[in-house]
Amino acid sequence: MFSFTVRRLGALIPVLLGMAFIVFMMVRAIPGNPAQLILGQQASKEAVAAMTTKLGLDQPWHIQFFNYLGGLFTGDLGVSIKTNTPIAEEIWPYLAATIELAIIAMIIAVVIGVNAGIISAWFQNSWFDYIAMIIALIGVSMPIFWLGLMEQYIVAIHFDLLPTTGRDNIRDPVEAITNLYLLDTLLQGRFDQFIEVVRHLILPSIALATIPMAIIARMTRSSMLEVMRSDFIRTARAKGMRMFWVVYKHSFKNALIPVVTVIGLQTGLLLGGAILTETIFGWPGIGTYIYDAINYRDYPVVQSGILVIAFIFVIINLCVDLLYAAIDPRIKYK
């Protein structure tokens, strides 16, 4: 296990370098001089030349890349053109907002998806199975940005049940400590604000959870069906074990590997999907941060935002790989 972890970490290095290289090249591939972009069209030639030197753009590109890498290692994500502050300093509130949204969405997706999948497999070909799988099929095909709009229209605008935008009540904003508002409000003992934050979370997290939920439900069902045909399940049932325990303990434990893979993969995709959900619900997360930066042509922010999300995605996948051994002792890494 230890040597596997080390080798798995070793395999990450070329991937991380490659990722950094791609986002580095991305900005270089944009037509026009970045220095000009930063200073605007009216800037004098001297100012542009000074900026070019300051940014190191007059150096050969491989030197520039190593400088960029060196910066990344020391936590330097560049400076935002729009706000002129280091991105590493201003990114956390956005990232925290996305993490909070993603965690809640993933909890919804896993709890409902896994249980729907288990029950569907347990009562295969029942009406529950049919309805759950039809919903899952539609869920997989759902454009989440459209689902978000429909949610807003029906729940929020038509019936005025829940807020449609933002993370908290703008007239009574949450005082940020960790920027994870659920945690912050609890730390301050402001339960009224906590409820308000939860109310803001409901719609976007359901929109974001839909696709992973559907995929997890389908994967759990097919994985469970496979396991429930095996001999040890028949044995467990033959010895008179209650069906509930046969399903939830024996079968589910063995069906878990593909489910965990899908959950890991979906968590990463969720971060990508967040950019769509966040634009719809005005959620001040990293998706909104990147989206605004694209419209503002704030390329350092686009670059670093994408790199940060991709980095989290890679780490999640690493955790999933390491989890396998913990879940299934039959897996031995050589």
């Binding site: 991937v15 490659g18 995605f313």
Partner: peptide
């Protein structure tokens, strides 16, 4: 295979957004 690994390391819609941004 390494190039594939690197491309798959990005959430796909995000990579698409990055490419279009360029």
């Amino acid at each position: 295979s390494r190039v594939f690994d690197i491309l798959l390391a990005f959430p796909s819609i995000l990579l698409a957004i990055a490419i279009v941004a360029v």
